[in-house]
Design a protein around this nucleic acid. Structure first.
Lengths: 292, 292
DNA sequence: CGCCGAAACGAAAATATCTTTCACGCGTGA
DNA sequence: TCACGCGTGAAAGATATTTTCGTTTCGGCG
């Protein structure tokens, strides 16, 4: 995972305190330089204390500063060999369309790389296992995340899994009550704090269903009721580039991974279902007018 | 210099004592493993003492063991990243999840690049111009493309444009009849032959609306009724990687470009609308720290 | 054959570095 | 205003690294 660190810093930044953010930023800006520093040195450089540096290292997922430093050295060596010219210019109001296209494409590519790097395959595997065995699956998502929920459901249906997407909070809760052990509930929320999505997940959780959260905030409230957490990447947003754009890309990748995982796991039954639905659609594409 | 270490060990070996050679050999054989060890650990592993380890590190040109260890970590990371060009293969039923993630991400990145390269900015510009001036906009899409249609509509609504998504063919046609010159109709279909989507576009076209087709088949029947054609990329599909996946990615990029283009073109009114909708949503997220 | 000195080596002291604990101060909400 | 909780850093405590220094080993030489 090459740019994993930068992505992780961005993902975790919101749950950091000011001092920790300073440390994280220093580390993200100059991994090589920081690798050469001791705790005390880095604390001095960022105007904080050793304790804060260690705390930051912990938050980033390392046992202590020593290990962060080792990882930093590795990262430095990597970006030494493979150059990473991150042209992270923002989209301006007067950018020509060709630039807009290039920047958007580049940005979403970056988002994909970050997401892939940050995705916990163990959690993913657990979620896939649960999905593959589920009697039924409910997926909650609102707004842009609602579309992702629908996308997942469409795919699951194609391979013969029973799945429903809910974007109406009330109906979602009403349905969540029906869930029981062996069923799966998935909540999709970038912010991790969307109440309308958390509530049905909580209900599902309390009824014994296996719950999964797809969120950009692994520390968000939604994870409280999630057996498995799949983290989507958070990228810088701006006025002309709403967060919804990259979070959607990230969420879709995660959802695709879930789908492919389940398809693999249930290949015997999925394969015929896939071709069946494919053929069923075929006639709609040639036909000028579909059903009456 | 990647393999510089092994060479250095060989060069310096003659001037080393027996114990030091043991240490050097261990380091050369498994840099990654040694990077995880402390002086004491490495001393134990090689059956020598801490002092000897430090002496060896010095001989190899480092100020002390600490720095040797850092270099080792870098080396390990480098030779780790060296082997990763095996992503061209298809997803197999027995691929581990980590491969699935990597392959999917790589694939979608490829799709984005292809789409960006193949997008006709002139056509895009024309579509943007029409959208920016439109009284109202209707977007048609079925199945996976329906979600893309909804995504576009959600975004347009956010910047104050009047837009509707239709996935019901009948309602779509019913509404298409209402359109007139100055309005815009957009059809999204990967195949280019989806009758249920072509039909409303035809109606809109005949009623004088400006029509746009977002399709992977510029020679498809849908383009017959399209004033502007935006081509999405078509990538190779397979059993476990339905075409819907990459066509969706491609379509979304195109739709994002449309959105940003319109936002630029109507910046005066779009900017306040963007922040307004942003704030309206804020209270729905019981934010923990920082913004959502 | 045994003594001497140089070099190798490791145990342990000394130092540097990392981690943990704890108390202070600041802002927040009652 | 006060109490409370949280972020924070100083300093104590624990580890890891480096240095010191005495013991051991080995080859040469009387």
């Amino acid at each position: 995972m090459p740019a994993a660190l930068a992505a992780k810093v961005r993902t975790l930044a919101p749950s950091m305190t000011r001092s920790m953010q300073r440390v994280a930023e220093a580390v993200a800006r100059d991994p090589a330089g920081c690798a050469a520093l001791t705790v005390t040195g880095l604390a001095g450089l960022t105007g904080t204390s050793e304790a804060t540096v260690v705390r930051t290292a912990r938050l980033l997922g390392y046992p202590g500063y020593r290990d962060l430093r080792l990882a930093l050295a590795g990262l430095a060596a990597q970006q030494q060999s493979g150059r990473a010219p991150t042209l992270t210019t923002d989209i301006a109001v007067d950018d020509p369309l060709s630039d807009v296209v290039a920047k958007l494409a580049h940005d979403e590519q970056q988002t994909l790389a970050d997401t892939a790097a940050g995705l916990d395959t163990a959690q993913l595997g657990a979620a896939v296992t649960a999905l593959a065995a589920a009697r039924r699956t409910d997926v909650y998502g609102i707004g842009a995340s609602g579309l992702v929920a629908q996308d997942l459901v469409q795919k699951l249906l194609r391979i013969g899994r029973i799945a429903h997407a809910h974007s109406d909070p009330h109906l979602a809760v009403t349905n969540a009550v029906q869930l029981r052990a062996g069923d799966v509930a998935i909540a999709i929320t970038h912010s991790g704090f969307t109440g309308d999505v958390i509530e049905p997940l909580r209900v599902a959780f309390e009824h014994g269903a296996t719950t999964v959260a797809v969120t950009g905030r692994p520390d968000g409230r939604v994870t409280q009721y999630a057996d498995h957490v799949l983290t989507t990447s958070t990228s810088r947003e701006s006025e002309l580039r709403p967060a919804a754009m990259s979070s959607r890309t990230s969420q879709l990748l995660v959802v695709d991974c879930l789908f492919v995982g389940v398809a693999q796991r249930t290949y015997e039954s999925a394969a015929p279902a896939l071709s069946a639905s494919y053929e069923a659609l075929a006639h709609r594409h040639g036909a000028y007018r579909g059903r009456a």
